[in-house]
Amino acid sequence: MAWLAFLLEALAGSILLALVLLTCVDVFGRYFFGNAVDGATEMTEIALAIIVFAEIPVITWRGTHVVIDVLDGVFGRWVKGLETLSAVLISAMLYLLGDTVMGQAARALRRNVTTEYLHLPVGDIIQYIGIMCWLTAACTLSWGIYRIFMRREQHS
């Protein structure tokens, strides 16, 4: 799991740096040479999707999502059981969501939907998002199980 997280972070990180480079080259080219990068907007959008969905499973696995912890300590151990239950519920939702996303990807591929300028297949990127939804579902489940055995952390 740790090496997978490392790989995903490395992917997100390199795409992020590429995105910086892309914007700079695009603006420079347009302003000084009257020649912008074709499809820069599209590439930005795809890069964004790659970055976000490479990291979502990672932060889910590490449990670093935004949580509200005002009432921590007010409730007893039984809450932990409910937490696990909700982890199961969320992971089911994410699994079904991934399923729906994959359905949309298959549809986009079947109908040859492409991007506007570069004509890249839209279905491929949707498929990537779907797979990452499934991976996040697995991470949620593992986080829920982990919570049963671990003491509640103080603050995140």
């Binding site: 912008a36 907007t41 506007e116």
Partner: peptide
């Protein structure tokens, strides 16, 4: 996109999307 892109190309504009 589409037809405008083609027109822009033929007019040799600097396209911005």
């Amino acid at each position: 996109g589409g037809i405008q892109g083609e027109l822009g190309g033929r007019m040799e504009v600097t396209p911005v999307n």
